[in-house]
Amino acid sequence: MFRRMRFNSFNSSNISVKRRTAVGATDFLRRDDKMAALLPAIERMAALQKDCATALPAMFKYCEILQFEDNQLVLSTPNAALAAKLKQQLPKLQETLARRGWQVHGVKLKVQMMKAAEVKEQMRALFLNEAAISAFDSLSDSLEQSAQNATLIAALKAMVARRREG
Rank of each mutant, 00 (worst) to 15 (best):
P78M: 00
T96E: 12
E121R: 12
R99T: 11
R99P: 03
A132K: 12
N129R: 08
T96I: 03
F127K: 15
R100E: 07
A81D: 05
L82G: 05
D70C: 06
A116V: 11
A84H: 01
R99C: 05
Q89K: 14
I65E: 01
I133S: 09
Q103V: 10
K108I: 01
A117H: 02
Q72S: 10
V74S: 01
D70P: 02
A125H: 11
A84G: 07
E121Y: 06
E64W: 01
A80K: 13
F127E: 14
L109N: 00
I65T: 13
A116P: 03
Q72L: 09
F68R: 07
P78C: 05
N71I: 03
A84K: 08
L128Q: 11
S134Q: 15
N129T: 05
A131W: 03
S134E: 15
T96N: 11
Q122K: 13
E69N: 14
V74L: 08
N71D: 13
A117G: 07
F68Q: 01
L109V: 06
Q67R: 12
K92Q: 13
A135C: 11
E69D: 15
V104A: 03
V111I: 11
E64M: 04
L97E: 00
L75Y: 02
A81K: 10
R100T: 06
L86S: 06
L126T: 11
A131I: 14
Q88T: 11
R99S: 13
T96C: 07
S76Q: 00
E69V: 15
E118S: 07
M123V: 13
L82C: 04
M114P: 03
A81H: 09
Q122L: 09
E130W: 06
K120R: 15
R99V: 04
L93P: 03
E121Q: 14
E121G: 13
K120S: 07
